[in-house]
Simulated scan of single mutants.
Amino acid sequence: MVDLVTMSEYNEKKETCGTICLKYLLFTFNFFFWLAGLAVMAVGIWTLIQKSDYISLLPSNTYAATAYILVIAGAIVMITGILGCCATFKERKSLLKVYFILLLCIFILEVLAGILAYIYYQQCTPFCLQLNAELKQSLKQTMTTKYKQPGEEKVTNAVDKLQQEFKCCGSNNSEDWRDSIWINSPEAEKRLVPDSCCKTVTQRCGIRDHPSNIYKTEGGCITKLETFIRAHLLIIGAVGIGIACVQLFGMIFTCCLYRSLKSEPY
C-alpha cells in the first residue's frame, strides 16, 4: 500500500516537473516570437517612413500594400505571443487551443508568402513582368512631366533621392531628361540633367552630362529600382520561411503542454 502511494506521488511529481519544463519552454518561445513580431512590424513601419518617397514613384500600391501587410502581420504575431504567455502560465486549455489555431494560421500564411515571394524572385512570374512593365511605362513619364513642377515636391524629392542613392540618372538613361518639361524650361538654367544625376552634387552641375560628371548606369533607375524591390521580396520570403520554421517548435510545445494538462480542470 505504501509502495503504491509512493509511486503515485512520484508520477505526479514527474508529471508536474514535465509540465513546468514545457511551460518555460513555451514561454521562452513566445518571448522570442513576440520579438520577431516586433521586428516584422518595425520593418513595415521603416519601409513606410524611410522608403515612402519611392512608393510615390510606383504606378501601383503593391509595394505600399506589402509594407502595410508587414505592419499588420507583426501586430498579429505580437498579440499571439502575449496570448501564448497567458495561456501558458494560467494553464487554460481553451486558451491553448486558440493559441495553437492562431499559430497554425500564421504558419500557413508565412509559408505561402515565403514560397510565393521566392517564386516571384527566382522565376520572374507574371507579377515580375508586370512590375517591370509598370516601371518602364510610368517612371519616365513621372520624371519628365512632374519633376520640379508646382505641387509635385514629393515626386521631385523622390527622384533626387532615387538618383543619388542608386547612383543612376533618368528612368532608362540620362537621355530621358531631354523630354523633361523642367529641363526644357528657363528654370533649368541650361541644365541637361538634374543636379542629382551628378557624382558630386554642386549647384548647376547638371549643365554637363559627360560620364565623368554624371551617372551613366546601364538600364537607368528602372533597373536599380526593380532590383531593390525584388531584393526586398527575397528578404520577405526568407524571413517568412524562417519564422514559420521556428513556429513548428511552438506548436509542438503547445501540443505537449495541452496533453500534460489533459486531466487538469479548465
Rank of each mutant, 00 (worst) to 15 (best):
V2I: 07
D3C: 14
M7L: 02
E9Q: 14
Y10E: 01
Y10F: 08
E12N: 15
E12C: 09
T16Q: 15
T19G: 15
I20A: 13
C21A: 10
L22T: 04
Y24Q: 11
L25A: 10
T28H: 03
F29T: 00
N30S: 11
F31V: 15
F32C: 02
F33V: 07
F33E: 08
G37Y: 00
L38I: 03
A39E: 09
G44V: 11
K51S: 07
D53F: 15
S56E: 08
L57Y: 15
L58A: 00
N61M: 14
T62N: 09
Y63I: 13
Y63E: 14
A64I: 09
T66R: 07
T66E: 06
I69A: 10
I72M: 08
A73W: 06
A75Q: 05
A75K: 09
G81C: 09
C85R: 05
C86S: 06
A87P: 13
F89D: 11
L95N: 13
L96F: 01
K97T: 11
K97P: 00
K97C: 13
V98Y: 07
Y99M: 02
I106V: 12
L109K: 07
L112W: 09
L116K: 02
L116C: 04
I119W: 06
Y120N: 15
Y121Q: 13
Q122W: 01
Q122E: 05
T125E: 06
T125H: 05
F127K: 08
F127G: 02
Q130H: 12
L135P: 06
K136S: 15
K136C: 13
S138W: 02
Q141F: 07
Y147L: 12
Y147P: 09
Y147G: 14
K148Q: 11
Q149R: 13
Q149E: 06
P150A: 13
P150I: 01
K154A: 03
T156S: 04
N157I: 02
A158Y: 13
A158V: 11
V159K: 06
V159Y: 01
D160N: 12
K161G: 04
G170H: 11
S174R: 01
E175R: 03
D176I: 07
D176A: 08
R178A: 01
R178F: 06
S180Y: 10
S180M: 07
I181H: 10
I181Y: 15
I183P: 02
E187Q: 14
A188M: 00
R191M: 12
V193G: 05
P194M: 05
C198G: 03
C198I: 07
V201A: 08
Q203K: 07
I207D: 04
P211E: 07
N213A: 04
N213D: 04
G219L: 12
G219E: 05
G219F: 09
I222N: 10
I222A: 12
L225E: 00
T227M: 13
F228Y: 14
I229K: 02
R230C: 01
L233Q: 01
G237L: 05
A238E: 09
A238H: 04
G242V: 03
I243E: 02
I243V: 11
A244T: 12
C245K: 00
L248V: 14
G250C: 05
I252N: 03
Y258G: 03
S260C: 07
S260T: 10
L261Y: 02
K262D: 03
Y266A: 12
